[in-house]
Design a protein around this nucleic acid. Structure first.
Lengths: 201, 201
DNA sequence: TACATTTATGACTTAAAGTCAATGACTTTA
DNA sequence: TAAAGTCATTGACTTTAAGTCATAAATGTA
């Protein structure tokens, strides 16, 4: 990699880090692009070199963490669906807690306007869908899920659970431990949620 | 009621109706306060007589519909919890469908920033929580729910389901019939969701 | 060394939210 | 019933912040 590209990537990282810190502190709507750029010492125009719109920076926050999670889950070749789903729920909520309420809010908001996302831009939502479809597809191939209901539909059911959890956490002001929630939810509820689709034999 | 107050209420209704029509058509972010006021023929300042901030008008959209629903459910004195919850889910999703994706998005977004709501302003979210707590409290008193887990917690569980449904519907671009979803969800899933909290005897 | 490419800049344009002092229609009261 | 008082309404104005773009600087290439 040449010096120019490397410097550019560092610049982008500086912007994302500044955005993460400031948005976590004050909330998206109370942080201006000027705030972000002056905080990390670049010009306003530089922001718009890397992001088409102010909202787009939110997609990059937490990206490194969730990429790592993805790698980890995909590597769990020997584990079954339940194990993978549990791990994924845990990591999901851990990321939620780590990034904070205000950033989660913005993730959810971005999810609600998927049409407005720039093309070829992997949103957190698309990432989550892909992960869950992958896990479920494996379960179909192994014969654990009947496969009658499309994997896509089941993935959406689960996504609504995960985003529901995240939304609840935001609404509660972050007052409960996501860990507890995952314990109660990922085990009890997910099992219940899936019961009708599990292959009987 | 005197002539002035009546005129004022008509003015407010004109604004809310215009806002509903325009936001349903173009989405909240693509409608300016100027658009709304010029559409219904009042001055911009008039908008700010009735609403502190642009976002606040969204709370009033659908208000008449959901008030009526509330009355209806509260009047179902003879019905049990399951019946009431089913009816409520149906009405909830009917309202969702009636008001449209763009308005639902804004409801969800507003829910995510509860702290920013003006005081003494009943948000759709607060309305939903109150309704569900009421239904569940009755079930506790009748002895149908064990009451070990606080009603508030269960209400939140359900709210996350309802808002999850609404969010999914928005994400899918409104491509499925909420009715089908309620059938699958309100019956199968809600039953499953509540199973561990139902009193055994 | 000279030319090309990529990255960074910040003053500028544009858009829209929100304010407020002035107006006059309606209501009260003496 | 006319003067005093109240309250909904107005729209020009202020303010804030998003997003643009011509230019400059740094790096890479021939």
């Amino acid at each position: 990699m040449n010096k120019r590209r490397q410097a550019a990537e560092e610049t982008k990282k500086k912007i994302v880090d500044a955005a993460e810190k400031l948005i976590a502190e004050k909330g998206f709507d109370n942080v201006s692009v000027d705030d972000i750029t002056s905080f990390c010492g670049v010009a306003k125009g530089t922001f718009y070199v890397y992001f088409k719109r102010k909202e787009d920076v939110v997609q990059d926050i937490g990206y490194a963490y969730f990429s790592a999670v993805g790698e980890e889950i995909l590597a769990m070749k020997e584990s079954g669906m339940a194990e993978k789903l549990r791990r994924y729920s845990e990591k999901f909520m851990h990321g939620v807690q780590r990034c904070g309420i205000r950033i989660c809010r913005q993730w959810i908001k971005n999810v609600l306007d998927p049409a407005d996302l720039p093309e070829n831009y992997p949103s957190k939502y698309e990432f989550d869908v892909a992960m869950l479809e992958n896990i479920l597809q494996d379960a179909v191939e192994v014969g654990q899920l009947s496969g009658e209901t499309p994997v896509e539909t089941l993935a959406h059911l689960l996504i609504s659970q995960l985003y529901g959890m995240m939304t609840c956490w935001c609404m509660s002001g972050g007052t409960f431990e996501p860990k507890d929630w995952v314990g109660r939810f990922a085990d009890e509820q997910t099992e219940r949620l899936f019961a009708p689709y599990i292959k009987k034999n």
